[in-house]
Nucleic acid binder design. Structure first.
Length: 196
DNA sequence: CCCTGATTCGC
DNA sequence: GCGAATCAGG
């Protein structure tokens, strides 16, 4: 695979959107994340943080917010039919089931300091929606099946059989998966805008 | 161990 | 220019 104009363009676009190198590589296909990173460097757009060595955090941030990409792109008068609008639409618009997420009491069995169950507080609706979505994919682990890298978010009533732990891969060091981290750690003050 | 980006260096 | 291997951090 070579870096055709189109591929480079897509690379720039995705990188600009804050996509991680591995994700970009996955979408491009035929390249590894290393290739993507290497290319990004060569293109001179290695922005995103001045820490240099600490770039891991910029990942995993999939902006749930809809992107108002309604540009006409007059820059390309070429006779390019451009039959493919936006291939990367991972959200098949699955109806956001506002599933009550049957989580009842937070009576945790062992002395595990489990998360403060977010009652009906002020939580990002988006975050909640994300949670109810991922909970469908949850591994449904039991307490004993939990490991250092499985999401320890409890779901359901411990007194019932309808109780399990998320079990999805945790993010980094954190006890929960991405989605659950989102609802577990509510930003004290809304997230600051990233400096681009 | 999972992940992230950064850098190096043979090709 | 390319990208695997390696490095450095979470």
């Amino acid at each position: 695979m070579s870096w055709s104009d189109e591929r480079v363009e897509l690379l720039k676009k995705l990188w600009g959107e804050g996509q991680s190198a591995s994700q970009i590589a996955k979408e491009l296909g035929g390249v590894t994340r290393n290739a993507v990173i290497g290319k990004v460097h060569r293109l001179g757009l290695s922005n995103r943080n001045g820490s240099g060595a600490t770039g891991a955090e910029s990942a995993t941030k999939a902006k749930p917010a809809a992107k108002p990409e309604a540009k006409a792109k007059p820059a390309k008068p070429a006779a390019k039919p451009a039959p493919k609008p936006a291939p990367e639409a991972k959200e098949p618009a699955s109806p956001v089931q506002a599933a009550p997420v049957s989580r009842a009491k937070q009576i945790i069995p062992a002395g595990q300091p489990l998360p403060p169950q977010p009652s009906a507080n002020e939580i990002d609706p988006a975050a909640l929606a994300k949670v109810s979505e991922i909970e469908k994919k949850a591994k449904r682990l039991t307490l004993m099946e939990l490991t250092e890298r499985t999401c320890k978010w409890p779901v359901g009533d411990p007194a019932t059989e309808d109780f399990w732990f998320c079990g999805l891969p945790v993010q980094a060091g954190k006890p929960y998966c991405e989605a659950h981290v989102g609802v577990a750690f509510q930003p004290m003050s809304s997230r600051r805008d990233r400096k681009r």
